[in-house]
Design a binder for these strands. Structure first.
Lengths: 112, 112
DNA sequence: CAAGACAAGCAACCAAAGGTTGCGCATCTT
DNA sequence: AAGATGCGCAACCTTTGGTTGCTTGTCTTG
């Protein structure tokens, strides 16, 4: 079985810029396209598009306030994403260990 | 601190097709562009390109044999990738829990 | 309160990535 | 020798991440 991961979530956190955005939003407790772009190597517009992607994936939500648009992380959804990350990691890990065990078994049988 | 992840590794495993390819290669112990594409919703050429990406990321290696080109997973490198996955997961997890603790503290202070 | 500053949204445009088809070349197989 | 099979290459299309330029809406302040 191949885990049937929610690809939208994955691709949302698959982008390095978006990961850094999430990091910042978590560290600072929120931010706008403008404040985020100040710490990133891309323009405000690019950040805005990324925020759109994260929003559609449900990882962040926006609270308009005056001329600003404050984003914050949806913790529950990010927790889900983290869970999926570790699920995939665990799957591969298990397979790697199984292979390692088999390899060792083969080696042992050849030492006979 | 922002983990300074190896972006090439991440983007390699960030693609859903490539994840499925790795899954298959692990499950079957190896495969060619042709055999892989048989189980994927894309053409052999697309798979070949993905194999190129995985190869450059060091996640797979090829062994040409006659007219075939057999790929297998580089276990050590995939183990590294898995480690990075869980590192990011752990970072976010820690932040989420910190936030949760703070939120609870605030709530307690308001119950006073 | 009018004027400038600041945040965001929109649109056009560009480059890179993922995908396709169509081909040609090498290697098995019969 | 002839057909089948596996691969690589090239041209092309679409999506995605990025940019610049401009407009609109909301403070701020002289």
């Amino acid at each position: 079985m191949t885990a049937a991961i929610d690809d939208e979530l994955w691709s949302a956190i698959g982008d390095p810029i978006r990961r850094r955005m999430l990091d910042r939003l978590l560290a600072d407790g929120g931010g706008t396209a403008t404040t985020l772009s100040a710490h990133l190597p891309v323009t405000r517009q690019a950040v805005a598009k990324h925020l759109g992607v994260l929003d559609r994936a449900g990882l962040v939500r926006a609270t308009p306030s005056g001329r600003e648009r404050l984003y914050h992380v949806d913790e529950a959804q990010l927790a889900r994403a983290v869970a999926q990350l570790s699920a995939v990691g665990a799957t591969w890990d298990a397979r790697l260990q199984r292979i390692k065990r088999i390899a060792e078994a083969i080696q042992r049988s050849q030492e006979t």
